[in-house]
Design a protein around this nucleic acid. Sequence first.
DNA 1: CTGAAAGCGCTTACAG
DNA 2: CTGAAAGCGCTTACAG
Lengths: 340, 340
Amino acid sequence: MTSTQRRPVTMADVGAAAGVSSRTVSNVLSGAKPVTPATHAAVMAAVRELGYQMNVTARGLRTGRTGLLTVAVPALRIDYFAELALAAVDEAERHGWAVTIQQTQSDRERERAVLGGHDRLLSDGLVFQPHALGQEDRDLLVGDQPVVLLADHPMHADVDQLVLDNEGIGHAATTHLLERGRRRIAMVGPNDDPGLSTAGAYRRQGWSRALRSAGLSDASTLVVAQRWTWDGGVRAAEELLARGVPFDAVFCGNDSLALGAVHALRRHGLDVPGDVAVIGVDDVRDAARSTPALSTVAIDVAELAARAVRLLVAQIERDTSYEGPRTRTVEHRVVQRETT
Amino acid sequence: MTSTQRRPVTMADVGAAAGVSSRTVSNVLSGAKPVTPATHAAVMAAVRELGYQMNVTARGLRTGRTGLLTVAVPALRIDYFAELALAAVDEAERHGWAVTIQQTQSDRERERAVLGGHDRLLSDGLVFQPHALGQEDRDLLVGDQPVVLLADHPMHADVDQLVLDNEGIGHAATTHLLERGRRRIAMVGPNDDPGLSTAGAYRRQGWSRALRSAGLSDASTLVVAQRWTWDGGVRAAEELLARGVPFDAVFCGNDSLALGAVHALRRHGLDVPGDVAVIGVDDVRDAARSTPALSTVAIDVAELAARAVRLLVAQIERDTSYEGPRTRTVEHRVVQRETT
DNA sequence: CTGAAAGCGCTTACAG
DNA sequence: CTGAAAGCGCTTACAG
């Protein structure tokens, strides 16, 4: 007995059934060239009859397009990146593209591999949030692959990048706390690894500047959170409490940290914002949903992801609206809710 | 002036530079056949020299494998599906596969297209959570494409499926509320569209059975939530309050609904669980994080997604551990937190 | 408007 | 252990 595994139906098979060549089948299915109504009908009938499905890999080899976009982020465990990735999927679908998601785990080698690894990616373009990449890796950013960079600071003038004003974000958050009458404003976030977490470093600079402008100092209330997650926020708040240094507000590097910190502070019997005000950054979905609702410096992640996808698609399709590589600044705004 | 667009480097180019044929380059890079150390070194040097990157589309056409898995879910806006999709990405990466995510928006045509659309998908297999598919579509489930189904009820004996015991889940949740002394137990969830939300219909049956066993009736406290989202939960709770029918507990079809319901109940001055106990289903990440922490019937989504991916990979790779299509039941367990 | 043929860049039996 | 050649299933100049 031989295997019953049937050979997939090809365009040639459809053509044979319809009495035309595979070229005509291709023209009917792609709409690239006009065909007579009779031919069109015959081809479509054969397609249905044989249950033909186009081999998109073969089309991809021939056209150089796969219809796939890659979104590469540090880690999906972090709410911000999860929302970013999912919003990108959503927007891409709206434009007829599919998305594959890659996690780099903030590993430099993996980030380098995403940009120009051993294999050329199956996808036609890349939305990429680097984290561990250094100045030495700049050259990789301008490869043959269409790229839109989501970065903490400008990385390369010849690449499309959407850049956050992180110093401004830190300053805005801290200024908000000062305006609410707080004077002992702790910060949770910045990693001590100089190569990593540049967002944290810039946000910290903004925090320092706001404090200095108000004639305040800061050194004793900076807490390092190795991971910018909810659990990291819990641990950071506990460390802050354990130190015994008084504080009446906490500026957290992102909302995940802030939500974890609020949780931990309340578990320890503190009132938020009565005893301690807390503000985060990002405005992830949970920020508005949590009780008390979290004040934050909002970045519209969904809009950011959508912009990145639209920009990438324009670049790939050489849309007339595409005006070459640009560095664009992403908006942010303070959203006051219940924790400040 | 001609365009400076350079032709991509091919295996033949690498072979020419290394003084071997493309076949040998292929063998070196894939490791399919052994090569002498000298040849290996020469090829790798040429690869580095020329900056060669394999065209994976061409490899895909030849081998019939793309290294891509598709995960198709109703909508990423629903936390459960978002977690499912992201957990699948995570597990797939661990096995060396990439994932593309598709949203069907619970649209029957889109669900049919995912199974056997006009185009054969670029991916090698499918993890699929159907929602709008009916009995008439059963045949599509057994196409040429490797599939693992995540279903609300058994759909086809010849397909790998991981099935929830939804009646049991409804019964467990309601029994838990009864054990906590509740007697007027509302339910939020089931859609009135008979074709949709079979999960809700089965969970409702379990709720009814538990109430009947306790000698209680239910009819007046069933609320339909058109969308199983946080907003839907807010609206459902408000509708329940507006009716004026007394209730001391709410069983919600999922956690998103439950979290929204808790939020709305508290906004209306009710104490949870003092006045009203609330339980959901799924145990999404927010359930444990919210204040008060949400009691729920936990389904380990991450483990479910990981199991589905492992099963699919085994099926695709014809792993010896793969034992043919099976219907497996997914575990659930009541997790009591603060809302009950 | 349509056919016959070349070619996209790989992998893999066929020889040696 | 390696080379020369066929072929995966499409699209697209080249003819007619």
